[in-house]
Structures are given as C-alpha cells and as structure tokens.
Design a protein around this nucleic acid. Structure first.
Lengths: 336, 336
DNA sequence: TTGCCACCTGGAACCGTTTCCATGTATACT
DNA sequence: AGTATACATGGAAACGGTTCCAGGTGGCAA
C-alpha cells in the first residue's frame, strides 16, 4: 500500500504539500495540486484513517452502546443513527449489552480509550462510574431514550405519552384499565418507567381507583403479553381496557384475547406503544414513538457537542402522538 | 490521559519495558513487572487502540457490510456476529447499504483502508470491483448467506430448503403450489433465488406443472405478502398451497387469508421461511434458518483466515430444517 | 581471572498521518 | 533599489504505541 511519503517522492514534493492537497488547503499552487492529484490517482493512494486519527487526535468514529438489539425499537433507533451518520464521514462502532457485566465493561471504557470521539447511550441508565469516566476523559456523550441531569439527551416524554393513551381510554368510558409494561432499562429494574407514572397520574386525575393487580411488568415478548392478559382476565374484576408498554406485548395481548374469544375492541380495548410496522397492519391503536428520530437527533446532539463543547447541548424532549386505529374502540364508538 | 511514556518515566523504566508488561512478555523481571503494573494502576493508564493499531499494523476491528438492517434476518445475523466477537477483543464497524451507491462506496474501499482487518459481507453479491480490491489489498473476506467461487462463505442451501418445503406440501397432497418469494440480494435483481430453483426442481420431480403465474417476487413486507395472496386467489385456478420466501411475507399471506375468510390450513396450506420469533407464536410451518449461526460461523471463518491466510477457508453450507406447525395442515392430516 | 551465556533493560526507529515553523520566491509598494 | 507582504513549500516534530538491537549485569564453568 502506498503511503503519503511514496506520493511525495513520486510527485517530487514534500509530505506537507501532499497532506495539504488531501485536506483541500488553499495554500497549494494549482499546478502542484494537479501533479499531486495525478500521482495519488496513479498510485491508487488512500490515506490511512489510523494514521490520520492518531495525528489529528480525532478518530472520526462514534460509539453507540445499546442493549441487545433484537428488539424492533433498538433496531429503529440504530437505523436513525445510521442515516444521520451517512452524510458525515464518521464510522460507527456498536457495542451491545447483553448482561450487566457487558454494561460495566462498556461503561468502564467509554469511547474505547480514544477509538471513538463520542458516545451515544441508548436506553441505559448511566452509572456513577460512567459519569466519572466521561468527566475524566471529557468525552461527549448523549443519552437516547433516557434522561439524566448531568448529560444531554433525546427522549420521549413517556409520562405524557402514557397520559395520552390512558386519557383516551378514560374518555371512551373505561373505568378498569390495566397496564402491561416492561422495563425501560433492562439493567435498572428498580426505576419505574415514566409510563407507569403517567398511567397512575392519569387514573388519579380521573378519580379512578389504582389497583396494583392491574399493573403487570413483563418482558418484551408477545408470549409475555399473552400471559399477562390471561392473568388479568382471571381476576375477579377483569379490566375492560389494557394499555401495553410496547406493541410487541400488545400483539400478544391481542392474540390471547382472540384465543379466549374475547372480542377486541368490544369486550376489551387495547392501546399499544411504539407504533411498529405491524401495528398499522393489525389495526392497533398506539402511541407513535419517533424511533428513528431519536437516533437522528442523538447524533445531531453529539455532533453539536463536538463543535461547542463548552455549552453542553440541552435535553430534547419529543412529544408523543396517539395513533387511533381499531383496537381501542374509538372508531366503533364514533360510528354508533 | 497518561501515555506509555508517562508510565515509563514514573516507574523509572524504559517504554519498551512497559510495552512488554502490557503484552505479557515473559522477558520482564517479576519486581519490575509489579512496579510497572502499580504505576499503570496509579495513573489509570490504558493503552490507546489507535497507537497500537498503527504500530502493530492490526486494527483489531472487523467490518461487516449488510443491507439496511431493518429486517429481522439481518438483525439476527448481526447478533450472531456480535456474540461471536464478544469473546475476542475485536471491535465491529457496521456499514449498512441502502442504495446501490452505498454498496459501490463500501465495495470500493473494503476494510476502510486499514481500519478493519477483515470483512464480512452479508447477503450481497460481490462485484468485480470488490473482488479486485480484496485481491489487491489481500484483505480477508467472508460471504454470509451468499456464495461465490472466489471467496469463502457461510450459507444455507436455499435450494435444498425450498425442496424440503415444497416436497412437504406435495406429500400432503397439494398439486397447485405457489411461491411468494423475495430477492436474496436487493441489489442484484437478475439472479434468481436458490429457493426458486428448488421450488421448480421439486415440482418438476413430482411431475407437477410449472405455472409462471404462481411465482410471485415481492418485497419483504407483510403488505406485499397480502397483495400477493390476493392476486393468487384471483386466478382462475388459485393455488391450494403457498410457499413463502420469508416469514414476514407469510404473516401477510396469513392475514390476507383471514380477511378473505380462507381457512388456513384447510383451504390453504402455508409454509414460511426463516423461523422468526413470531412464526412459533402464529403456528407457522416454516424452514428454520440458523440466522445467528450464519453470523457466528462467518466470524469463525474470518478469524480462521487471519491465522492461516494461505489456505483460504472453504465454503460452509448449512443444512435446512423443516419445522412443522399448523399452517401446512400436516397436524390435522395426521389427526384425521 | 576470563569467557560465555542467559536474562533484563533502555531507547531508537518505525507505523502513516497532521501541523507548524522556517525558508524561499515573487509581487507590490515607497 | 529596497523593503514589506503574501504565498508556496519542505521537512521536523508529534501523535501513542511496538519491535528490535545493543548493551549491561550476574552467575557459572574452565
């Protein structure tokens, strides 16, 4: 492989001049530039990102730390990040977290010690260790789908979103509304999701009773959603409506209802969360979560932090939107 | 950030000695090693992967080129790659391809000029340009879910898989079997999928008529699957069975059948492809494609190619497996 | 005592860039 | 003509490691 010195020798110039040509500096005479360009072409020379990164102290690489990305939500966020990065010439290093140990390892070394210039942290709660490391290395970081006072972030207002969904069900006349939720950060089981807060607050505001047995926290899968509905229907006073914390779980609820002969929306209303592709297709009423937008804005925040590190970029909150389809009964109610 | 020279100075040794301690060379006296270790701890020193990569000429990074990863299949393959890499200390750079221009850009510069030591190419057909570049740079590359005489690969035998599926339908008594397929490589529309070959061959072997109007090539979505079934049912002689090239499309076929009141499996048998999570849950008979395994073995092949570059690793073909559930009618047929 | 060897160790050279300083040359102005 | 200025250019130093070579040291045998 040709190096910059080969080019310099062949073009009979100094390495500095070649470097200037590469970076498009105006400080090069047109004919010199042309000669160097021709030599670069002829030798098929490409600058080494490694050498460049070392010399510039900038690796042109971003790191994203994300929980195991089998879930549609994460995939979409990553996709948004990808798209936003396509315009720039940043490369992307993805670190996925499967076990707490993975998280600790990733948090102990954000940016992989110089390999990345900035970090996007998706759906994970920063630990004290991480915050200390970030501060020590002055590494820009942005939280996606999470907030923390010490860091810039892009997040949906889950509380407002849940309020929107539950309010909608209340307006449709439901008094017994259950919640089938999941953990926001799979490694922080203690923190209640914003959705649950919004759910409770809205019920309280509507003067409705809070029933602990109506709150189910399960994992992400449709199976878990099915099991949750089975349990809810087995209660002495089963709910007439379910707000699911993810469309994936809602799909399970829907299937469980069908298997039990419970008619949706007539016997049971259902509102999901995220608006995944399949939701439109199943007629699922849901909260639209701008997943790609989360990724895109995360990148934007990070790039902004590179330019003006002094004033740390702020916290962006995305507003939720309710997509009314068939499973909540609103369409039928209106038709009646 | 402390450098190796800082450590050397503080520990009153030469940089070479620090480097030897870092790499675990036996050529260091125990007490010297202890002193250096202590200094490293005290300064919180971490070697820079960039400097190391430059000096060693090895970047400890792998590149994977993959079509836009919204699809379950790609996500699972990536997951397999991730898991296989977790044991090693290789980092992963992912390049996703959305448009042909992206592919050309990625293929023009495999390994990002030294940034990566090897490349995994998922579901993309190598171009002449790519092959030339790989040869010129002596960069190890492995094809995943694709084969090419010039490169090592890990792939499923799609032809055998399709034969398995179609054979199963034939055995169940079906004579009119349609194919709802998709393109294997979205950027190589001309090449027929192995599935189609297997489909045709099996029909021919069973003495069944090949009907061009039974072969549908659509995109990946459930919507496309729905449309395809609608078109098939509108034929004068509609098929009694459908073999779908992906479970995602099969889900659409299933839904279209339900909307039209066509009973599955009684009026229409269905076999999918991939065995995605939702397949089990919908009772979809399908071909199990070891998606993670594809990724895992791809990495294994690549690492093997690093060790013994001379004898290029061979072509691994994974055997398909038919998972019989409800949508093909076998269970009912057996019960009768 | 000398010679040999094994074992440690220091540090220069190198990996492939960028950056900055010093220098040279041509042009413009007084 | 002399000087100030602008522009082009070469090349050393730096980025943070690894590697290799040349010593230095101590032990042991002759």
């Amino acid at each position: 492989m040709a190096t910059i010195r080969d080019v310099a020798r062949e073009a009979a110039v100094g390495v500095g001049t070649v470097s200037r040509v590469l970076s498009g500096s105006p400080q090069v005479a047109p004919e010199t530039r042309a000669r160097v360009q021709a030599t670069i072409e002829r030798l098929g020379y490409r600058p080494s990102p490694l050498g460049r990164a070392l010399a510039r102290g900038r690796s042109q690489t971003l790191e994203v730390i994300v929980p195991l990305f089998t879930r549609y939500f994460y995939v979409e966020v990553l996709r948004g990040i990808e798209v936003a990065l396509a315009d720039t010439d940043y490369a992307l290093v993805i670190r996925t977290i499967e076990r707490p140990a993975d998280r600790d390892r990733a948090f102990a070394d954000p940016g992989s010690r110089g390999r990345a210039e900035g970090v996007l942290i998706v759906s994970l709660t920063p630990t004290a260790e991480l915050l200390a490391r970030l501060a020590a290395t002055a590494l820009p970081a942005v939280l996606v789908n999470n907030v923390h006072p010490a860091l810039p972030s892009v997040a949906l207002d889950h509380e407002a979103a849940a309020a929107l969904a539950v309010q909608h069900l209340v307006r449709l006349g439901h008094r017994r509304i259950a919640l089938v939720d999941h953990l926001e950060d799979p490694f922080a089981p203690s923190s209640p999701s914003g959705r649950r807060c919004g759910y409770r607050a809205t019920l309280a505001r509507a003067g409705l009773e809070l029933r602990p047995e109506y709150e189910r926290v399960t994992d992400f899968s449709p199976e878990a959603g099915m099991a949750a509905l089975d349990a809810l229907l087995a209660l002495p006073q089963p709910p007439t409506a379910v707000f699911a914390g993810s469309d994936t779980q809602a799909v399970g609820v829907l299937e469980a209802a069908r298997r039990r002969g419970v008619a949706v929306p007539d016997d049971l209303a259902l509102v999901g969360y995220n608006d995944i592709e399949m939701a439109g297709y199943l007629g699922l009423t849901t909260i639209r979560v701008p997943m790609r937008e989360l990724g895109r804005l995360g990148v934007q925040q990070l790039l902004l932090a590179f330019e003006t590190p002094e004033r740390a970029a702020g916290q962006i909150r995305l507003e939720p939107e309710l997509i009314v389809r068939h499973t909540c009964g609103a369409v039928q109610a209106a038709a009646r």
